[in-house]
Computed example of a mutant assay.
Amino acid sequence: MLYGIAAYTLWGLLPLYFILLFPAGPVEIVAGRVLWSLIFCALLIAVTRTWAPLAAALKNPKVFWPLALAAGLIAINWLTYTYGVTTGQTVEASLGYFINPLVSVLLGVLVLKEKLRKLQWAAVGIGFIAVIVLTISYGKLPWIALTLALSFGFYGFVKKRVGSRVDALASLTVETVVLAPFAAVVMIILTVIGQATMTAQGPGHFWIMAASGVITAVPLLLFGASARRLPMTTIGLLQYFAPMLQFIFALTILGETMTIERWIGFGIVWLALLLLTVDMLSTNRKNSAARRLTTQLT
């Protein structure tokens, strides 16, 4: 439980970290995040001497190509999230991660042909109503929230499909290996045109940028340690922790405002999440009771 809380707390604190990186823009932040994450992952693999799983993942097309797709999805997610935070739209960014569980449920129907229970259908329907209300409130589609929800939803789906074949550290390393050439080109271009800040704002700024490798990898490793020990029901409840922290920080520290219409829209989203949570807990209780009964009979 402590591993899980620590992981989601660090993810919830990301907006404050990105603000510290000013005047770096979202493209430079994401490019730096990729390169420093690769360095940090390589150090971890060297220390733990786990080169074999990484080599196996790189050589296996059934592992490498899904992870390459996951890398593209997480790059879109990181870039959109960083743009949202650095342009004063952290509230909408947090909305994306509130909507994400609804996207995951919808993916189960559209891609895996799963059948939804009544409360799940109700939650998805209410989620669509929330998007309509928020679209009216913003005067446009909340594209930051929708891009974050869709990219992370598909990212989670791809990772789940390949998860049994590769461990968390090797998986993250492959993703950063795929993205590193693009990130390096971006950093070179930014340097040539005079827009790179990593080495132009003093040693303090440089090391804060360098810390992005640790800040990216550590929550993922903590999450992996938590996921191996906790039931999926508990993990499902913990996932609301990060966007709630982001939402609170956006209002109290970053000074973003909420209109009545947006409060209504967020309230509808939270109602949908409440229905999903009730359904998840109820289903888990029934499954546990069924397992106990089967154990007693056998």
Rank of each mutant, 00 (worst) to 15 (best):
L43H: 04
L254C: 12
L222T: 02
L237G: 04
T147Y: 01
Q120L: 12
T197L: 02
S137M: 06
T233V: 12
I132H: 15
P142W: 01
R285C: 06
P26H: 10
M232A: 15
S94G: 10
H205E: 02
T298D: 06
M232W: 04
I39E: 02
V166C: 08
A122I: 13
N60F: 11
A242N: 10
I248V: 15
N77L: 11
I215Y: 01
P203V: 04
L13G: 08
F223W: 09
T86N: 13
A217D: 01
P26S: 10
V133W: 07
K113D: 11
P53S: 05
L79R: 00
E256G: 12
F223V: 07
P219E: 01
F22H: 10
R49I: 08
W121P: 10
I19Y: 07
D279H: 12
P61K: 04
F266G: 08
I189Y: 15
L116F: 14
D167C: 07
R291G: 07
L106F: 14
K160C: 03
V91C: 06
I208L: 14
W121Y: 15
A250Q: 08
A211N: 10
V27N: 04
A31T: 10
F18I: 06
P101H: 13
S282D: 15
S137N: 11
L237S: 09
S151E: 00
A225M: 15
F40Y: 11
L10Q: 04
N60Q: 02
A46M: 10
V34H: 05
L79V: 09
M232Y: 11
S137T: 14
Y138H: 14
N100I: 05
